[in-house]
């Protein structure tokens, strides 16, 4: 059976370059502007019973049907920081692709990051050894091999001309297969919402608008509607510190590599990239992250794998099983008819 997963180069099936995010969690200030800007643009219902979620300053919990940008807050002790540095050093020593600082720093890269003119040779690790508070804005990964897209039976999920993965609200029938198909737990079917709509009126002061797309799978569209008009996605536009960067995926990966090298040079061995490797289980992600600890600390899977990669084998096994069933029936008739 032919390979069913998409190759990275299949994605550029249009003249547009593939777009993506680079989320640099080392400069995230946890303000949640991305969450609000996203909800505001996409008119997502709020996602809360208005109770503390018992997780530091995080009260939206995780990505889901209504929250398409989610800021994680992790409080860590010195011991955990040391472990993170340790695991970062281990990564470096593995000899992974793209190790070490780029030979020469391309001056064009890294929007918002001005080349240092002062901190030339400071390689001592920053001193916050006793405690740290990690913040990280998570989002749909827009995988090269997107589990949700592959398993969608209706074609509601599709690969856009920008290489992103988007749900068509008017097509989805809410079967929920994509929810199970996502190795990152991103996509979710929208339930009835928490506040019952008073009226159908939208954008009217003093009126609650109806919740849209109930029963339909929902996730980050990377603001497809804005993208077709050459606008920046709402979250990236709002982000005060450019922790969320948006642009051509290739450029994002380059920026990410440069930034991680910079941090490692400064002694932050805990810095690492997530999703920048096209050979990983999902073929690389459209949304690349710079993390300061192991992915699971942020609620990300450590070794995600698109289920479609194993689908040919599963079909094969199912075929054998089906054949077995046919054979068993035949045997049954032969055995049962013998008397």
């Amino acid at each position: 059976m032919r390979q069913l997963t998409e190759a990275p180069d299949h994605i550029a099936h249009h003249e547009h370059p593939r777009k993506g995010f680079f989320t640099d969690t080392s400069i995230c200030i946890g303000c949640k502007a991305c969450e609000v800007a996203c909800k505001e643009w996409n008119r997502n219902p709020h996602d809360s019973a208005f109770e503390l979620l018992e997780s530091s300053y995080d009260n939206t919990g995780s990505l889901g049907a209504d929250t398409w940008r989610h800021v994680a807050f992790v409080e860590q002790s010195g011991q955990q920081i040391e472990q993170a540095r340790e695991s970062g050093r281990a990564l470096v020593s593995l000899g992974m692709p793209g190790i070490g600082p780029p030979a020469s720093r391309p001056s064009s890269a890294a929007p918002g990051i001005v080349p240092s003119d002062t901190a030339s040779s400071d390689t001592t690790p920053p001193d916050t050894p006793e405690f740290r508070w990690l913040m990280s804005s998570d989002v749909c990964k827009h995988c090269t091999n997107a589990g949700c897209l592959d398993v969608c039976p209706t074609g509601a999920l599709f690969r856009t001309e920008f290489g992103t993965v988007v749900v068509q609200d008017d097509v989805c029938n809410g079967c929920g297969t994509c929810v199970a198909g996502c190795p990152f737990g991103v996509i979710e079917r929208r339930s009835d919402g928490i506040v019952a709509p008073k009226t159908e009126r939208d954008f009217t002061p003093g009126e609650q608008a109806a919740t849209r797309n109930v029963g339909v799978a929902q996730k980050c569209t990377l603001c497809y509607d804005r993208m077709v008009d050459d606008q920046t996605p709402a979250c990236a536009q709002a982000c005060p510190t450019t922790s969320i960067k948006y642009g051509d995926r290739e450029e994002m990966v380059a920026t990410a590599r440069q930034r991680v090298a910079e941090l490692q040079t400064q002694g932050m061995s805990e810095a690492r990239l997530y999703g920048a490797n096209d050979f990983d289980g999902v073929g690389g992600t459209g949304s690349v992250f710079l993390l300061l600890d192991e992915p699971e600390v942020y609620g990300l899977p450590p070794d995600p794998r698109v289920p479609t990669a194993d689908l040919p084998q599963m079909f094969k096994r199912a075929g054998i099983a089906a054949a077995g069933m046919l054979a068993a029936t035949a045997v049954a008739f032969v055995a049962g008819g013998r008397r």
Binding site: A33, A37, E40, G206
Partner: peptide, 22 residues
């Protein structure tokens, strides 16, 4: 430079707030 904080990003909801008295 085009950026907003969460409150600024919620401005549309401030204007069209369901709880707004008119």
């Amino acid at each position: 430079r085009g950026r907003l904080c969460p409150k600024g990003a919620a401005s549309e909801q401030l204007v069209n707030a369901p709880g707004r008295q008119t």
